[in-house]
């Protein structure tokens, strides 16, 4: 393999992609396997950063930015704050029970993962669309959100508003009754 600029760019891009995949999967493993909740949340944030990189490789930089802004910047920070407010900690389980539950959960996860991966490998997906309606740029996305997906867009803003009000109401209730 000769080192022309094109080759080098392809190599760098492939290495970046492999790095993002590794960050996504390792972060996910930390998020579910770590014993302390703080490390779980950090693993989740790491995994979402990797996922944002994968979105970038799928030609949607807007989604990549939203992923980092909303998931890493808002949801992970909120989970962290809730943990601090409630002083959450996990009591260690007895060793035999921990091994039993771990192995059982792993087998259940395999029961989902292995058929899915076999399905992906075996199935012949339909061929790529010959004609693309648009290029999938940010401009196209914005236009589609305010025209074709306008109803869903408005609906989801109502859902978010209700979620905010509901969260405030639920978290406030019982605040005075028990010291």
């Amino acid at each position: 393999m000769t080192f022309t600029p094109d080759n080098v760019y392809a190599l760098i891009s492939a290495l970046l992609f492999a790095g993002f995949v590794a960050v996504t999967l390792l972060g996910a493993i930390v998020a579910v396997a770590a014993r302390r909740l703080v490390r779980n949340v950090t693993g989740l944030a790491l995994s979402f950063v990797g996922l944002a990189g994968l979105y970038y490789f799928l030609h949607s930089p807007f989604l990549a930015l939203m992923q980092i802004l909303i998931y890493v910047g808002a949801i992970c920070v909120t989970i962290m704050f809730a943990m601090m407010l409630a002083e959450l900690h996990e009591e260690p389980r007895s060793l035999g029970m921990a091994v039993l539950v771990g192995v059982g959960s792993f087998l259940a996860a395999c029961a989902f993962a292995i058929p899915l991966i076999l399905l992906v490998r075996r199935s012949a997906w339909m061929p790529p669309a010959a004609v693309q309606a648009n290029a999938g740029t940010i401009e196209d996305l914005g236009r589609a959100l305010l025209t074709r997906f306008g109803f869903a867009f408005e609906l989801i803003s109502v859902v978010l508003l209700l979620a905010i009000i509901g969260a405030l109401a639920v978290a406030r209730s019982g605040r005075r009754s028990k010291p």
């Binding site: 579910v32 949340v41 792993f106």
Partner: peptide, 26 residues
């Protein structure tokens, strides 16, 4: 598929509500 399976694993293994929420996000 691997992310989904990791989430299922965490959902069954975790014993706190926050851990289950994290797995759900995965």
């Amino acid at each position: 598929a691997l992310l989904f399976a990791t989430g299922i694993f965490g959902f069954l293994k975790q014993r706190t509500l926050v851990g289950m929420l994290i797995s759900g996000e995965l």
